[in-house]
Structures are given as C-alpha cells and as structure tokens.
C-alpha cells in the first residue's frame, strides 16, 4: 500500500500516517468481504510486477525505480478485476492518509476529531 502513496516534496507518504495501526483497526472492525477484498488486492499487487515491469519477483523485492513504475502501471492495468481490486486498496490507503491531521492541514481541510462510535444503548421507557 505504501508504494501507492510515497512521500513527495510537499506531502507525507502513507507510511508516515499510521498505516500499520490503521490496518490492525480495519481488520478488527470491518466486514469479512471487505477485508478479504483488501488482502486479495494486496496479493495481486505483489505478484504482478512480471506483467507491469517485466520483473518476475514480488513487488516488495523490486528496486525503487521499478517499484514506482509498477505502482503507476498496476493502477491503470487493462484487466478490470485487477484494476478494481487495486482501486479498493488505493481507496483504503487514501482513507488512512487523508484522515491524518498534517495532511488535512496541508490540503486546507478541517481536521477530524475522534469518531465517537457511540449509539443509543439503553432501553427507554
């Protein structure tokens, strides 16, 4: 996932925005099909460098320049199901990255307070 959103000269990368904590929480809270879709997307991303940059090794063993090229090409693959799987991965990457306070400040968007996660629980007579 971090390959999809590396740091740039003006913006932090996904790795700087608490992605590990985010994923642990997501796995705990989300539905089975959503998590399964994300895992599938991650696996597909890892095993497809052979199709995008011609390297028959997993994406995490690629040198930096090839990783960057793979990140770009994989997201625009002509294979629809692969593209959709990676889109799901990217959407959750953006969700984690975009709720970071520093990111929101840089993009002039109001910061998010903590989500309360609460609801009415008591019987009301």
């Amino acid at each position: 996932m971090c390959d999809l959103m590396p740091p740039s000269s003006t913006l932090p990368g996904l790795a700087d925005t608490g992605i590990d904590t985010f994923l642990v929480r997501l796995q705990r809270e989300t539905s089975g099909p959503t998590w399964l879709g994300l895992v599938l997307g991650a696996i597909l991303y890892a095993v497809t460098p052979v199709a995008t940059v011609g390297w028959p090794i997993p994406s995490f063993w690629l040198p930096a320049s090839a990783r960057a090229l793979h990140a770009e090409r994989a997201m625009s693959t002509r294979f629809y199901l692969l593209r959709q799987s990676l889109f799901l991965l990217k959407m959750y990457a953006c969700m984690c990255w975009g709720q970071d306070t520093r990111v929101r400040q840089l993009l002039n968007v109001a910061p998010y307070p903590e989500d309360p996660g609460s609801f009415r629980q008591g019987v009301e007579q």
Partner: peptide, 14 residues
Amino acid sequence: MAISRLAGGGATLM
C-alpha cells in the same frame, strides 16, 4: 474519497 478517484499510483498520484 475524492483523491482516491484521481488516476494512477505512486509518485504520479502524489
């Protein structure tokens, strides 16, 4: 959600 709609990945996306 809006930025996830921007095409591409990696440095291009950023």
